[in-house]
């Protein structure tokens, strides 16, 4: 058991090192790029005095290393700096929005994960027959359309033409859970469609891969029922790749959520990021960027850890 713990500790440590380099990359990416940031923010007509002022308030007059270390130290103390646009602490604005984004992502996952595994199993069971072909052509189409367009098609059909769901998602604290869920039903539907397609196709591939093995053929020759073979012979071996698929897609959700939040004007972290990229509010972009990267890396580590736990072969690296 201790070897498992060591392996997991290694993965987590690796993730932390990675996150450290990512912070460096985001910092360099925003402050060391060609062009003067202060000039970009103020535009060509800025006076030299206002440029100098802005540089001083951004700390641009200090050497890059000092700036980076100050920024990093701030993050560890929960201080993400102040937004340029309204001068208020970023951590304050982010807290609530992060919660909103997590709420959306959580309910999407609750619906999408079991559904995709079920559909994956179904399409393997009826491989190359009409249920499989139907599922795979629907998922192929939904992969070929970008998230924001899928969202507008959904709004047009279900929100406007049929009038079933609200087209703008503004949940607030006075609502009950049911009302909140109803208000975000369209964004959830869109996100489910987007990640369901990827997840279901990868689940199908993972199970099919296992189904080609010799022991499955043996089970078939023994006369075991098809569903029993899938459930008790194929599933345990397909579990580790499936968990991996699920985690990777939840990480993908982090990106999908950005666009969908903008479409539905949902007060989450993604729409906050896009707003402030347009306003060139650097401290906010850096802060939100590092948070998204941290979630993404965190989910990937979780995927690694879970596959170590579910797949004994990974516990004994050669």
């Amino acid at each position: 058991m201790s070897s498992v713990l060591t392996l997991i500790a290694q993965r987590v440590a690796l993730g932390i090192v990675l996150l450290f380099f990512v912070s460096l990359l985001i910092f360099l990416g925003t402050l060391a790029l060609p062009g003067d940031v202060a000039q970009t923010i103020l535009g060509q007509s800025a006076t030299p005095e206002s440029l100098a002022n802005l540089r001083a308030s951004l700390g641009l007059d200090q050497p890059p290393l000092t700036r980076y270390l100050n920024w990093l130290a701030g993050i560890f103390q929960g201080d993400l700096g102040n937004a340029l646009t309204n001068g208020r602490p970023i951590a304050e604005s982010i807290g609530k929005r992060l919660g909103n984004t997590m709420f959306l992502a959580f309910w999407t996952a609750v619906i999408a994960v079991p559904l995709s595994i079920l559909l994956g199993l179904l399409s393997v069971r009826y491989r190359n027959r009409w249920p499989d072909k139907l599922i795979s052509s629907v998922t192929l189409t939904s992969i070929s359309v970008p998230e924001f367009l899928l969202a507008y098609v959904m709004i047009f059909v279900f929100g406007v033409k049929l009038g079933w769901f609200p087209t703008i998602s503004l949940p607030n604290d006075s609502m009950s859970l049911g009302q909140k869920l109803y208000s975000i039903s369209l964004p959830i539907l869109v996100l489910v469609m987007v990640i369901l397609a990827h997840m279901m196709r990868m689940t199908r591939a993972a199970i099919l891969n296992v189904m080609e093995s010799a022991y499955i053929e043996t089970a078939e020759l023994k006369g075991i029922k098809q569903f029993t073979i899938i459930a008790s012979h194929a599933m345990p071996n397909a579990l580790s790749p499936i968990i991996n698929v699920v985690m990777l897609n939840l990480a993908y959700l982090v990106v999908g959520v950005v666009v969908v939040e903008v479409v539905f004007t949902y007060p989450g972290l993604g729409s906050y990021l896009v707003d402030h990229v347009a306003k060139r509010d650097l401290p906010v972009v850096q802060a939100v960027g590092i948070i998204f990267a941290a979630i993404y890396i965190g989910l990937n580590i979780l995927a690694d850890v879970l596959s170590i736990l579910t797949n004994p072969r990974l516990r004994h690296p050669k």
Binding site: V22, G29, T30, L31, V254, V255, V259, G289, F292, Y296
Partner: peptide, 19 residues
């Protein structure tokens, strides 16, 4: 390292300082 950041997020971060 680059792939550990979602590419849309990375693109947004870079585009916040580039014209």
């Amino acid at each position: 390292l680059i792939m550990s950041i979602p590419s849309l997020i990375f693109a947004l971060v870079v585009l916040s300082v580039m014209p």
